[in-house]
Design a protein around this nucleic acid. Structure first.
Lengths: 197, 197
DNA sequence: GTCTATAAATTGATAGAC
DNA sequence: GTCTATCAATTTATAGAC
């Protein structure tokens, strides 16, 4: 048997496990409201240990934003986002966006709260705008194909509908209350059919 | 004629004018991302001059959050929010909420981004929840009165619809693009009738 | 009502031992 | 991979002159 006493265990981390811990704190306190000391405490290690894994706080933010953006852009590259009636493509993009939000909630939440104070944030904001443009194109096509009401502006519709999707991060929690597909159903029903019965 | 040379003008402030400048910076850089030095620069005075007007940064935040919350709760106290069919009351609350958002955009934006790091923020979050509860009651009544589809949960509907309203702060700018009433029309149409024609 | 000067605490980051 | 020790810069806040 081992005669060594168990050393006073400190947490040990990989870049990924550290990132998970960091993103959770970022979302709890806000990115700017989080100090390296906050991150160290949450990770169970010291500040200097964090620098062994990453360059600094902004690098952690950048990795999380990349995860979120990659998930969202992957949706736009799926066949169902590019084939068939634009109305169906829009519904697909909506449902899959909710799924990405569900699967990558911490990263997506962070993405949606970015203010643009640093180069990392500015780049993320630009990629978000690109996502919006591509969705707006689909909405415009759906209107052109005669499947959506014509009295609404495509850009405005996109902003309102994705405003609804994005607002999910304020209250939706995986495994608590409604499932992601319940939420997606309600959202799609509301968007296409409205509240009237 | 005056023989006095024009003195090197520093900006002079009242609490209100300082608050306006501060809220603008808070929204640009985020509350936590804003230092007293940032506020001083934006106001055209020094840090220490700010302390002549207010206790500190958090006091400025508190005043702005009060403005936003007062505007929203005032809507709930209006006669049209309390008389007639719940469906009409809901539409009134929706339209007036957009108007409050338009009239007090900087303060409302700040309110919607609060994270809960300080007592001031926690109190604001609690008052927001109270607002949500009161709106949810109206939605539930509208469903009970048979004016809205019954296959959606009132709390979920409230979250989705007010998620849409709240998302306006991310892009709506008074005097640029659509007017507030254009936006309110589109939002109400979308919420009640959906995208289908 | 604003300023300069300064204090006290916090923050992001690095060096180097184990 | 984590630690202690340390630093330079920033940040909130106060004292007191004009």
């Amino acid at each position: 048997m081992s005669s060594e006493p168990v050393p006073p265990r400190r947490a040990t981390h990989t870049v990924d496990s550290l990132l998970d811990a960091a993103v959770a704190v970022f979302n709890d306190r806000g990115y700017d409201g989080t100090s390296m000391e906050d991150l160290a405490r949450a990770a169970g290690i010291t500040k200097s240990s964090i620098y062994h894994h990453v360059k600094g706080k902004e690098a952690l933010l950048g990795m999380a934003l990349d995860t979120a953006l990659a998930g969202l852009f992957a949706v736009l590259d799926e066949p169902a986002s590019n084939e068939g009636p634009a109305r169906d493509r829009l519904e697909h993009i909506l449902r899959r966006s909710v799924e990405v939000l569900d699967a990558e909630l911490p990263a997506v939440t962070l993405l949606l709260r970015v203010r643009g104070n640093t180069p990392t944030e500015l780049e993320a904001l630009e990629r978000r705008r690109e996502f919006d443009r591509r969705v707006t194109d689909v909405v415009a096509q759906a209107i052109a194909e005669g499947d959506l009401r014509t009295d609404l502006d495509p850009a405005l519709v996109t902003r309102l509908v994705f405003g609804t999707v994005n607002s999910l991060v304020e209250w939706y929690r995986p495994g608590r209350g409604e499932s992601a597909s319940d939420v997606a159903d309600a959202l799609v029903t509301l968007a296409f059919d409205g509240l009237f019965r």
